[in-house]
Each structure stands twice: as C-alpha cells, then as structure tokens.
Simulated assay, not measured.
Amino acid sequence: MAALRQSARRPADTPHGLWLLVPAEDPRATPTLDGRTVEVVDRVTEWEVLDGLFVKSLRTD
C-alpha cells in the first residue's frame, strides 16, 4: 500500500491519483480502517469530506 500511495503522489507515475473512501461518524476525526490510521499528509489537498447528499446523488437505483 505504501508504494501505491507514493506513486499516486508523483504525477509522472501511475496511477494518476488514488481515492480511498473511509466512512466516518465524525468528518473531522483522523480516518481509520480496522483500527489503523489512514495517513493524510495534507488535509487541504488530500482530504475531502463527502456529505450525505453527495453520496446519495451517486446512487443509480
């Protein structure tokens, strides 16, 4: 996972970005998966809170 994360941060490498969606009760809390912290270097460029209305708009049913 670390190699994938580092490649995603270098524009010349593939993949050209990486999205990791992490459900959370508190959007301001540090994200975790299975009790492990998800590293976020810069909350301005690497963090986006998706509100419920946005997520509902993605549904295709």
Rank of each mutant, 00 (worst) to 15 (best):
residue 1 M to R: 04
residue 1 M to D: 08
residue 1 M to E: 06
residue 2 A to R: 13
residue 2 A to Q: 14
residue 3 A to F: 12
residue 3 A to E: 15
residue 3 A to D: 15
residue 3 A to N: 14
residue 4 L to F: 06
residue 5 R to M: 12
residue 5 R to L: 14
residue 5 R to I: 14
residue 6 Q to R: 13
residue 6 Q to P: 09
residue 6 Q to A: 15
residue 6 Q to L: 14
residue 8 A to L: 09
residue 9 R to G: 10
residue 9 R to L: 15
residue 9 R to Q: 12
residue 9 R to C: 07
residue 9 R to E: 08
residue 10 R to P: 04
residue 10 R to T: 13
residue 10 R to C: 08
residue 10 R to K: 12
residue 11 P to V: 11
residue 12 A to T: 12
residue 13 D to E: 14
residue 13 D to M: 14
residue 14 T to K: 10
residue 14 T to C: 07
residue 14 T to Q: 12
residue 14 T to L: 12
residue 14 T to I: 12
residue 14 T to A: 10
residue 16 H to C: 07
residue 16 H to M: 11
residue 16 H to E: 11
residue 16 H to Y: 11
residue 17 G to L: 04
residue 17 G to Q: 04
residue 17 G to N: 03
residue 18 L to A: 03
residue 18 L to K: 10
residue 19 W to N: 08
residue 19 W to E: 06
residue 20 L to F: 00
residue 20 L to S: 01
residue 20 L to M: 07
residue 21 L to P: 02
residue 23 P to A: 05
residue 24 A to S: 15
residue 24 A to H: 14
residue 24 A to P: 15
residue 25 E to Y: 08
residue 25 E to N: 08
residue 25 E to A: 14
residue 26 D to S: 09
residue 26 D to E: 10
residue 26 D to M: 12
residue 27 P to W: 09
residue 27 P to H: 09
residue 27 P to K: 08
residue 27 P to V: 13
residue 28 R to T: 14
residue 28 R to K: 10
residue 29 A to S: 03
residue 30 T to W: 07
residue 31 P to W: 02
residue 31 P to V: 03
residue 31 P to C: 01
residue 31 P to F: 01
residue 32 T to G: 00
residue 33 L to H: 04
residue 33 L to E: 03
residue 33 L to R: 03
residue 33 L to N: 01
residue 34 D to Y: 01
residue 35 G to F: 01
residue 35 G to H: 02
residue 35 G to E: 01
residue 35 G to A: 02
residue 36 R to H: 03
residue 36 R to C: 02
residue 36 R to L: 05
residue 36 R to T: 02
residue 36 R to I: 04
residue 37 T to V: 15
residue 37 T to E: 09
residue 38 V to Y: 00
residue 38 V to C: 01
residue 38 V to F: 00
residue 38 V to A: 00
residue 38 V to T: 00
residue 38 V to N: 00
residue 39 E to S: 07
residue 40 V to M: 04
residue 40 V to Y: 04
residue 41 V to T: 14
residue 42 D to Q: 05
residue 42 D to S: 11
residue 43 R to F: 13
residue 43 R to L: 13
residue 44 V to A: 12
residue 44 V to E: 10
residue 44 V to Q: 07
residue 44 V to M: 06
residue 44 V to K: 03
residue 45 T to C: 04
residue 45 T to R: 07
residue 45 T to Q: 07
residue 46 E to C: 03
residue 46 E to A: 05
residue 46 E to Q: 12
residue 46 E to N: 04
residue 46 E to T: 05
residue 46 E to L: 02
residue 47 W to I: 03
residue 47 W to A: 05
residue 47 W to V: 03
residue 47 W to N: 05
residue 47 W to L: 08
residue 48 E to G: 00
residue 49 V to R: 06
residue 49 V to I: 04
residue 50 L to E: 03
residue 50 L to I: 10
residue 50 L to T: 04
residue 51 D to I: 04
residue 51 D to V: 06
residue 52 G to L: 11
residue 53 L to F: 02
residue 53 L to S: 08
residue 53 L to R: 03
residue 53 L to V: 06
residue 53 L to M: 02
residue 54 F to R: 05
residue 56 K to H: 04
residue 56 K to M: 09
residue 57 S to T: 09
residue 57 S to N: 06
residue 58 L to S: 02
residue 58 L to C: 09
residue 58 L to H: 01
residue 59 R to S: 15
residue 59 R to C: 14
residue 60 T to D: 13
residue 61 D to E: 13
residue 61 D to P: 15
residue 61 D to G: 14
residue 61 D to C: 11
residue 61 D to K: 11
residue 61 D to N: 12
